[in-house]
C-alpha cells in the first residue's frame, strides 16, 4: 500500500507510534469493521474508526434519528432528525474521511441475516441497546469464530469485553438474557450522554488494537466503570464449561431471536 502525501499527513500521528507505524496504518487501512447499532456507542466507534482510516466500516441499524438521540449519539445532528441512522452515519463518516468505504444495512440484526452480514468483516462492535441482540451478536460471532467487542451502558455505568475465538464469551459470564423488562433499557432508565463516548471510544480502541495487533485486548477480562466515582475495574473472566454456546455440550448450535422487551418494541413502532 502506498500512502499519498495527504494520507501520510492525515495518519502521521499513527505512523509516529512505534507500535503502529506504517505497517500498522496499512493494517488499519485494509481493515473491515462492522458496527452494530448507530446509536450512543456506535456513534463514537464509527467516528473514531473513520478518523483512523479503517478501510471498510459496515453500519447496521434499522432506526431513524430521533430528537432524544442527540443527547449522546454524536454522529447525528439536529437536521438529521427523521433520517435513517445508517444514512446519517454514512454522511458524517464520508465527510470526516473520504478514504473509508461505508457499507450500510438499514435493518435490525436478526438470526436470519446475522451470519451473512458478519462474515465480510474482520471485527464486530456491539453498540446495541438491548439484550436480545447482544446475545445474538455473541452467538453469531462465537459460531463464526469472529472477534468482537461487547459494550453496554446504563445510567452512569458501562461494561465491555473483547471476544476472540477460544476466549471466554459474553454467554460464559451472562448465561442468557434477563426476562423482558427485568432490566430497564436506556430509554426507560436514562443514561449520561458522555458515558456513551467513554465506552464507545474504549471499543474503538480495542478494534484498532485488534487490527494492528498492538497490546493486550480485553480478552478474558470484563472492564466495568461507574462515572459517578470514576472507578474502573477489570475483572478476570474464565470460560464456562456450561456455556450454552461455547461450553462442552453446547445447546445453541444455531441463532435465536429472543423476545424484546414490550416497551422497546412499542417505542420503536411509534417512530
Amino acid at each position: 500500500m502506498n500512502f499519498t502525501e495527504d494520507q501520510i499527513n492525515r495518519y502521521s500521528r499513527h505512523i509516529l507510534l512505534q507500535d503502529v507505524g506504517v505497517e500498522g496504518q496499512e493494517k488499519i487501512s485494509s481493515g473491515k469493521v462492522l458496527v452494530v447499532g448507530a446509536g450512543g456507542l456506535g456513534a463514537p466507534v464509527a467516528l473514531y474508526l473513520a478518523a483512523a482510516g479503517v478501510g471498510t466500516i459496515g453500519v447496521i441499524d434499522g432506526d431513524v434519528v430521533d430528537l432524544s438521540n442527540l443527547q449522546r449519539q454524536i454522529i447525528h445532528f439536529t437536521a438529521d432528525v427523521g433520517k435513517p441512522k445508517v444514512i446519517s452515519a454514512k454522511e458524517k463518516i464520508n465527510r470526516l474521511n473520504p478514504d473509508v468505504r461505508v457499507v450500510t444495512y438499514q435493518a435490525l440484526l436478526t438470526s436470519e441475516n446475522a451470519q451473512e452480514i458478519i462474515k465480510d468483516y474482520d471485527f464486530v462492535v456491539d453498540g446495541t441497546d438491548n439484550f436480545p441482540v447482544k446475545f445474538l451478536i455473541n452467538d453469531a460471532c462465537v459460531l463464526a469464530g469472529k472477534p468482537f467487542s461487547h459494550g453496554g451502558i446504563l445510567r452512569f455505568e458501562g461494561q465491555t469485553l473483547t471476544y476472540l475465538p477460544e476466549a471466554p464469551c459474553y454467554r460464559c459470564l451472562f448465561h442468557s438474557p434477563p426476562p423482558p423488562n427485568a432490566v430497564p433499557t436506556c430509554s426507560q432508565a436514562g443514561v449520561l450522554g458522555a458515558i456513551a463516548g467513554m465506552l464507545g471510544t474504549i471499543q474503538a480502541a480495542e478494534a484498532l488494537k485488534y487490527l494492528t495487533g498492538v497490546g493486550e485486548l480485553l480478552t478474558g477480562k470484563l472492564l466495568t466503570f461507574n462515572a459517578k466515582t470514576m472507578n474502573f475495574r477489570t475483572i478476570k473472566t474464565k470460560r464456562s464449561e456450561k456455556c450454552p454456546v461455547c461450553g462442552k455440550n453446547p445447546t445453541i448450535t444455531k441463532l435465536i431471536d429472543y423476545e424484546q422487551a414490550v416497551c422497546d418494541i412499542s417505542d420503536r413502532k411509534k417512530r
Partner: peptide
C-alpha cells in the same frame, strides 16, 4: 512532526 514521519516512512 513530519520530519520524523517522513524518516520513518523511508526507513520502512
Amino acid at each position: 512532526p513530519m520530519t520524523f514521519v517522513k524518516t520513518k516512512i523511508e526507513l520502512n
